[in-house]
Design a protein around this nucleic acid. Structure first.
Length: 182
DNA sequence: TAGGCCATCTGGTCCT
DNA sequence: AGGACCAGATGGCCTA
């Protein structure tokens, strides 16, 4: 265990209150699952928990679900895999966002929180610029301003549809042509 | 070595 | 019912 405060947190409630009725028939990482990447991971987790708990009544509500332990384990592994895929997609989206945000290049990549913060600031800056251009071009008629906003929205949606490599510069191009054309 | 950041597991809840 | 989403827990890696 890592020697830091975080590591001192105790397990989840479910693990902390062993169910006396429960009997573990098989466990993840046992013979029928051994070998797959997921089962290895899960097995490691279980082993870790068992080590921490001193290998006493560990699992809890598994029986109450009405399915066999084996079925439950299979479903758990499947949902772990889905969750992993989901997180990978999320990370890909973060990476795309990193690449879309202009920032000072360093060797160290932006953390997630930094990425979100910079993105928020970037959006705010762009919004300010666009509003500035909009009011400079069409300051008077309200209906024109609405049409203006509609065109901007249209450009933005088109940009979303395209989602190409140079989508950001395309979008900026749209904005420029918009400001020139108005 | 403490703290930040991250990946993964997990159970609960929401949604289709 | 099953998948998606979410948040908490935990351990690993890295850096100041």
């Amino acid at each position: 265990m890592k020697s830091k405060g975080k590591g001192a947190k105790r397990s989840r409630q479910a693990w902390a209150e062993p169910d006396p009725d429960f009997q573990l028939e098989t466990e993840p990482g046992s013979s029928e699952h051994e070998g797959s990447e997921a089962s290895v991971r899960l097995g490691r987790t279980w082993r870790t928990i068992r080590a921490e708990r001193g290998d006493t009544g560990m699992a809890t509500r598994r029986r109450r679900q009405g399915n066999s332990v084996k079925e439950r384990n299979v479903r758990r592994l499947e949902s772990n895999e889905r969750e992993r895929q989901r997180m990978h997609k999320l990370n890909n989206a973060f990476q795309a966002l990193r690449e879309a945000i202009p920032h000072v290049k360093t060797d160290k990549k932006l953390s997630k929180i930094e990425t979100l913060t910079l993105a928020k600031n970037y959006i705010k800056s762009l919004t300010t610029i666009i509003l500035g251009m909009s009011s400079a071009c069409l300051p008077h008629e309200e209906s024109q301003a609405e049409a203006n906003a509609a065109r901007l929205l249209q450009c933005y949606q088109q940009h979303l549809d395209e989602e190409g490599e140079e989508s950001l510069s395309k979008y900026l191009q749209h904005i420029r042509s918009f400001s020139q054309g108005s």
